[in-house]
């Protein structure tokens, strides 16, 4: 028994190094896909201290809008622009109808509001675009090829590249721009930010719009794999361990967390999963994240909050 758990998996890895490399690469590519979803959470948490329960539904809503427009004959490029416009309009509406009335409220109140938002968006999306599975094809290549016995897929590589570009742009935006610094100030204290002249409403609109666009990218990548349908919103569950591990306030943390979770769950599923009946990757991701929590409660890259009591 102990041999099966503690020794056999490692012998297996050493015995088939090419396959092990394929597992690791596959985990890294999947991890980037998780990061894409986690990024949306991080952006809003960074700027408003709100854990946005509706982020998964925003991914769905963005993808539904895109594919809905494409089904009506709108060219891909125009549908993308229109979807970005819709997500921006949505950010305006969220600020005007929901957030404006909750300035300086407890985080839990804002969190509850986002739960309500998720139901509204879900219902609105299904009412506008229907509940059927929709095929999403924006022209991303999808062929598979082998390099040194390792199977790679063009789509997965494209998704990874998109994720890397997004993370880099957002990290630069947060650290080196005036708006980025303002976003961080708002996250620390709404009232203090207002008192030094930071336009809170504008900041919220910007950050929710950017989160909407990140949601659109995640929606395209995940929607192209599974078709656009309600279950797209459930990928938020995959982002949670990434956030716990990477930290709720760190853009690079989202990507590093995603990569660790991606590789960890794939290796666990393939080498240890068969010993316990399989399908362990979902809970393993949470176990991994919880293990990190024991040593770093703020996550790998999260801000350590010290408060006077």
């Amino acid at each position: 028994m102990l041999y099966n758990f503690l020794i056999a998996p490692f012998l297996d890895m050493a015995g088939s190094p090419v396959f092990f490399a394929e597992v690791v690469i596959s985990g890294l590519l999947t991890g980037v896909m998780y990061s894409l979803v986690a990024l949306g959470f991080v952006l809003i948490f960074k700027a408003s201290g709100v854990f946005n329960f509706a982020q998964g539904v925003m991914v769905l809503f963005a993808a539904l809008t895109l594919v809905g427009l494409m089904e009506r004959g709108v060219p891909v490029w125009l549908a993308l622009i229109l979807t970005v416009a819709v997500m921006t309009a949505l950010a305006f509406a969220i600020e005007r109808i929901m957030l404006r009335h909750l300035v300086n409220q407890e985080g839990i109140i804002l969190f509850m509001a986002t739960i309500g938002l998720s139901y509204v968006l879900q219902g609105l999306g299904e009412t506008l675009w229907g509940s059927n599975v929709k095929r999403l094809d924006v022209g991303i290549p999808n062929a598979s090829f082998e390099i040194g016995g390792i199977l790679l897929n063009e789509f997965d590589l494209f998704a990874a590249a998109s994720g890397a570009v997004l993370v880099t742009v957002l990290a630069v935006f947060f650290h080196y721009t005036r708006i980025g610094r303002a976003l961080r100030a708002v996250a620390d204290d709404h009232q203090a930010a207002l008192s030094v002249g930071i336009p809170l409403k504008h900041i919220w609109i910007i950050v929710w719009s950017v989160a909407g666009v990140v949601g659109l990218v995640a929606g395209i990548m995940w929607g192209a794999k599974s078709g656009v349908q309600f279950s797209l919103s459930l990928i938020a569950l995959k982002a949670l361990p990434v956030l716990i591990l990477g930290g709720f306030t760190s853009v690079p943390g989202a990507i590093v967390g995603g990569l660790i979770i991606g590789v960890g769950e794939k290796v666990a599923e393939i080498y240890w999963g068969p010993l316990v009946g399989g399908a362990i990757e979902t809970w393993f991701a949470y176990m991994l994240a919880l293990a990190f929590l024991v040593f770093r409660p703020q996550g790998l890259f999260g801000e350590r909050i010290i408060e006077r009591v």
């Binding site: 394929e22 597992v23 999947t30 279950s231 459930l234 599923e269 393939i270 399908a279 990757e281």
Partner: peptide, 15 residues
Amino acid sequence: LAVDHPGQEQKATWL
């Protein structure tokens, strides 16, 4: 080969 609900991510299964 078991796939967990909902099955949005199955890379490990297909590896």
